[in-house]
C-alpha cells in the first residue's frame, strides 16, 4: 500500500534522510521508532506529501503522492503540532473537512460526539492541548481515511482517552482495513498496537520487521552453574551481549527458543531463565549497535 523507495531529503544542505526505503501493507499498523532527530517527522511529512523528496519515490497504491489529490483525499495526517484555523469552532472545521474529504461520514461525526463529549460550538483554539488532540482524532476518523499517518499521536492524552482512541483505531483497522503509520517514543504504547516496526537512526532505516518475529528471535538468558561457567558455553551461539553479575551470567542471544533452550540445558545449569525481550530492550540494543549506546555520565 505505502511504498517508500530510497528517499533523500536535505534542509539547508544538511541531509535528514539518507536513502530510506520501507513498505507498509494494507490493513497493517506500522510503528516508526527512532532516536531524537532521526528524521521521523520529515519522513512522515514526505510520505503524506507535505514535503517533496530530493531523490527517490513515495508511492501509495502505485501512485506518486506529491500533489496527488486523489490519494490525499483518502489520507489523513495528524502532525505532532496541530494546526486549526484561528477562530473556527469544531462544527465549522467539520464542515471544512466535509468539503475536502469525499468520504466524510456525518453519522460517524455525530456518533463520536458521545465518545469525546466536547461542545461542538466551542472554538478549537480555546480548548486545552489534550482536547485539541481529541478533536483532531474526531475529525480524522470522521473523514474515513484509508491511510492514517500519526506523528506522536498520544502526546497529551490521558490514559482513558488513549485507550478509547486506540480502540477506535483498532476497529477501523479490523472493519475497513485502514492502514496506520505511527511514530512514537513511547515504546510501551506502540508495542501492543503495531504489527510491524521500523527503526530510524540518523536518516537511515536500521531495521524493519514483524514485531512478533522480532521478539521471538532474540532472548534474554540468565544462567548460573554449580561450578565454574563452562568456557565453551557461548561458542556456537549468536551472542549479542554478555554480562556477569556475580555468579549469574546474563546474556542476550539470537536464535530459536527451543534450540537455545536445548543448547543451554546441555550444560546442566542450576538456574536457567529465558525471557523474550521487550521492545524497549530491543530498541536500546539495536541503537547501541548503531553507535547510540547508553552512557552513564557522571556530572
Amino acid at each position: 500500500m505505502i511504498d517508500v523507495k530510497n528517499i533523500h531529503k536535505q534542509f539547508d544542505r544538511q541531509a535528514i534522510l539518507n536513502g530510506v526505503s520501507l513498505s507498509v501493507k494494507k490493513g497493517s499498523i506500522y510503528g516508526l521508532l527512532g532516536s531524537n532527530g532521526a528524521g521521523k517527522t520529515t519522513l512522515l511529512n514526505t510520505i503524506s506529501g507535505v514535503y517533496r523528496q530530493d531523490k527517490g519515490n513515495v508511492f501509495i497504491d502505485q501512485q506518486p503522492v506529491f500533489e496527488n489529490l486523489e490519494i490525499k483525499e483518502k489520507m489523513v495526517f495528524i502532525p505532532d503540532t496541530l494546526y486549526f484555523f484561528p477562530q473556527y469552532t469544531i462544527d465549522q472545521t467539520a464542515s471544512f473537512y466535509k468539503n475536502m474529504y469525499s468520504g466524510w461520514n456525518e453519522e460517524r461525526y455525530v456518533a463520536l460526539r458521545e465518545v469525546f463529549g466536547i461542545d461542538t460550538s466551542k472554538k478549537i483554539h480555546k480548548l486545552s492541548k489534550g482536547m485539541q488532540r481529541q478533536v483532531s482524532f474526531w475529525l480524522s476518523l470522521s473523514a474515513m481515511p484509508d491511510i492514517l499517518i500519526l506523528d506522536e499521536p498520544f502526546d497529551g492524552l490521558d490514559p482513558v482517552m488513549r485507550k478509547k482512541i486506540k480502540n477506535l483505531l483498532v476497529q477501523d483497522v479490523a472493519e475497513r482495513e485502514m492502514t496506520i503509520m505511527i511514530s512514537s517514543h513511547n515504546l510501551r504504547e506502540v508495542e501492543d498496537l503495531c504489527d510491524h516496526i521500523g527503526i530510524l537512526h540518523k536518516g537511515n532505516l536500521l531495521l524493519e520487521k514483524d514485531i512478533d518475529d522480532l521478539k521471538s528471535d532474540v532472548h534474554k538468558v540468565q544462567l548460573a552453574f554449580k561450578h565454574d561457567t563452562p568456557s565453551s558455553l557461548f561458542s556456537s551461539m549468536q551472542l549479542l551481549y554478555k554480562e556477569e553479575r556475580g555468579s549469574v551470567t546474563l546474556a542476550i542471544v539470537r536464535g530459536d527458543y527451543d534450540e537455545v533452550t536445548a543448547h543451554f540445558q546441555n550444560y546442566d545449569p542450576v538456574i536457567y531463565d529465558i525471557l523474550p525481550l521487550t521492545l524497549e530492550e530491543i530498541f536500546i540494543y539495536e541503537m547501541g549497535d548503531a553507535g547510540y549506546a547508553i552512557k552513564n555520565i557522571l556530572v
Binding site: G27, N167, V170, D195
Partner: peptide, 18 residues
Amino acid sequence: SVRTLAQQLTINPNTIQR
C-alpha cells in the same frame, strides 16, 4: 470473530489473525 476480539481487547486485528 477477529473484529470482536480486536475491539474487546483493543489489540491489533492482524495479531489475532496470526
